[in-house]
Design a protein around this nucleic acid. Sequence first.
DNA 1: GCACGATCGAACCGATCGGTACGACCCCCT
DNA 2: AGGGGGTCGTACCGATCGGTTCGATCGTGC
Lengths: 200, 200
Amino acid sequence: MPVAKGTSLDPARTREGILAAATGLLYRHGLDGVGVSELCRAVGASKETLYRHFGSKDGLIAAVLEERSARVTHWIAEAATAAGPRPADRLAAVFDALGEWYAEPDFRGCAIVNAATQRHADPARAIAATHLGRYLTMLGDIAADAEAADPGLLARQLLMLLEGATVVADHHDTATAAADAKAAALALLATAAPTRKQAP
Amino acid sequence: MPVAKGTSLDPARTREGILAAATGLLYRHGLDGVGVSELCRAVGASKETLYRHFGSKDGLIAAVLEERSARVTHWIAEAATAAGPRPADRLAAVFDALGEWYAEPDFRGCAIVNAATQRHADPARAIAATHLGRYLTMLGDIAADAEAADPGLLARQLLMLLEGATVVADHHDTATAAADAKAAALALLATAAPTRKQAP
DNA sequence: GCACGATCGAACCGATCGGTACGACCCCCT
DNA sequence: AGGGGGTCGTACCGATCGGTTCGATCGTGC
């Protein structure tokens, strides 16, 4: 409960606060499951402030999705690079990170893909496309380092495992999804790059 | 445009007509993207008729999803059994069928999973869970026939590929999704059941 | 031949939606 | 000291939503 009436913090701080609170609410309740008034009450901001910062509800949604896409992909990429140089280790780390995410109590699937599903018009769908593109780039790096015969193909297949695991974890089987997907991903990697051993 | 005012057809026929028309509209526009009034106009039925048959919009949605789940899974299973006795052929046929689906001009992802994403309350999510369960059963049969070391694991991995391919085809890369997923599925099958050849 | 059941079309309801307007407040800067 | 900008809270707007009701209509089975 920082601010009182007039603001002491700079507007950028206000904007970030709205963004952070809206991210959770829109994810949990769905884009159409929470109204702007309710959003403002939970955020602790007035409608006027929200609309000055984001222009419209869709503007707020777009900002939320862009920020979340950047943060999530960065988090996954960090987990991968922290696992060391070996492609198999990096790939395993990606799915281990997903497993932590799936285990969170209010896991609800991929927020960006979910949003694109709920909005058939442009903004959300475009963001989802670039979001998947970011994943594909990261997986493509792993595939290339593993000297896969067709790194692009392997990356697209790994992306399907990643998104499929997320869907299955959301709608069917939360417990084993990440581990199952990890095993499948490592099997695909081994099949696509049989020449590479773990020589130093 | 069969019926005029009073009905000559039996109520079951009316119900089926509403169901069929609503299936397409709700899929294309999303569950919240089309109102009941618009739905009635497109269907050619009055609100009173719709509400007598389905009770509520959610009741209509549930009926649409149940019917679609049964029809889709039956269609995929038919494609698999028509491909012959060999597990690899049946698995390939599944993803070939998915490829036909992805290529349809108004493909929008899996209607049941999409609906479950849009509705955080019970009915749609429960239907999605049983829908994935049906897929899992079919894939489990293939895995078992292939004498996979762990048929349940393989089936869950294949399910992720199926759902992941659908997500990717919807939001990123429609063209190669099915073929990429098919190759990955066959590779997983070969890895999980290396003993089995195609002896007669 | 007549009542019954299914249907239509349109009016209607309260609720809620996204978005705007306004007066009051308070902090920062000059 | 004082003014301007960011904010709050609330009231308000038109539109639309899901759902109900009602009179008129028409085919079918008794």
